[in-house]
Computed example of a mutant assay.
Amino acid sequence: MGKPVNSGHASPWPSPPGFVPMGLAALTLLLALAPEDVRHALLTPARAWSWLRACAAAVFALVACLVLVPVRARKRAGPWGPPWLAHFVARLLSASANAMGVHYDVEWPACEIVADQPHVVVWHPHGALAFCALSIGGLLSLERQPIRWYPVVASVIFRFPLLREVVLLLGGREATKETISAIIEAGHSVGVQPGGIFEQLRTSHAREHAFFPPNLTFVRLAIEHGTPLLPVYLFGENQLFSTRPALQRLARFIRRWTGVPLIIPFGRWGLPWIVPRRTRVRIRFGRPVPVGPACARPSDEAVDAVFARYSAELHRLFDEGKSTLPADVAARGLTIVRRTRPERARR
């Protein structure tokens, strides 16, 4: 459920809820089918005006709740919603994953991870649908296994009613520099997925990749706040669904024009989206990578040095746990790709 800063073409505002006009249409239909004396009692000029004002107020309140509240909440540096509801949703998602045949175990290093110290939790890989990040990651975070963190996700997530409320309950926040900084400054850990939608659109069930943005914003922010990087690898995430290169090219084309990553992966029985393949996902936390004292304006050399240490720890973590992957995938190893800047950005 993760995305680094900058979400491409995604609109910063959620789409308006579609059931508002549907509700008004249903109300109109009910009035049309009501007996004549009822319509006359309800639709006298005075009462019609009163009904119109009441409907307008209800629609405004509904839009405010479903659009304006999530817009504020997605930048919130702390919990959102009742804790009991967040735990219920997290357990429900985890139980649903188990019912579909996706089981998991989690392990963190013997070295102490200071629970009260903010970390930048960096998880890999993104996967075709970030299935485990949503269905399992939220529960791990709420139960502090090993720490509580607030994952930042693509802005496009907040355009979909219900999904955005679930993400907010589980701690998901909008992936912007300001939000990440606010979370760290509030004393919380933040979770990022550096590959984001770029990696999602290139996920392969036959290879393991870790994509990183050109400017390594997550590393820069960690150095600015003196916050250690904590790598996490989800062995098996990529094997939950299979992907088709032709459909991925189509998805990249659609995203270029709409901002929406329309991914079409295939799970059990060859069905798209519905049910993932039966897989045991092994979630492994690496050793915290120190970034040194806080530095307001880290140099490119300092960022590259920290990234080199992070990459080395990520490789070590992967090599230690790759035996749990299919043999052919493990043999290919982990490929780390730092994207180059677009030509127009260099000019």
Rank of each mutant, 00 (worst) to 15 (best):
R347L: 10
A58F: 13
A41I: 09
Q239G: 01
V106Q: 07
P118L: 09
L234D: 03
A222Q: 06
P265C: 05
I147Q: 06
H9P: 00
E174H: 13
Y310L: 14
L43R: 05
L271E: 11
G270N: 12
R164M: 15
E112W: 00
F60M: 09
R252A: 12
V122L: 14
L93D: 00
R255H: 09
R344C: 06
G18H: 10
F266Y: 14
S50Y: 10
L271M: 13
P276L: 00
K3V: 01
T227C: 07
G171R: 15
A308R: 13
A61Q: 03
F60K: 08
V232W: 04
S181E: 11
Y150P: 02
I183H: 10
D319I: 05
T340R: 12
D300Q: 12
G187N: 09
V303C: 07
A32C: 04
L314C: 02
R207M: 10
P151T: 03
L262I: 13
R282T: 04
V167P: 00
Y233F: 15
E301Q: 14
L42A: 13
P35L: 07
L230G: 02
P288C: 01
V329P: 00
A86S: 15
V153H: 07
P14H: 11
G236K: 05
Q117I: 02
E165S: 09
N6W: 09
V38L: 15
Q200G: 12
G23N: 02
V5H: 10
G292K: 04
R280V: 05
V306G: 04
E199I: 04
T243R: 10
A186E: 06
V219Q: 07
K75Q: 11
R164Y: 05
A251S: 07
L30T: 01
V106L: 11
F285L: 04
V71L: 15
V167K: 01
C132G: 09
R339Q: 14
F198E: 04
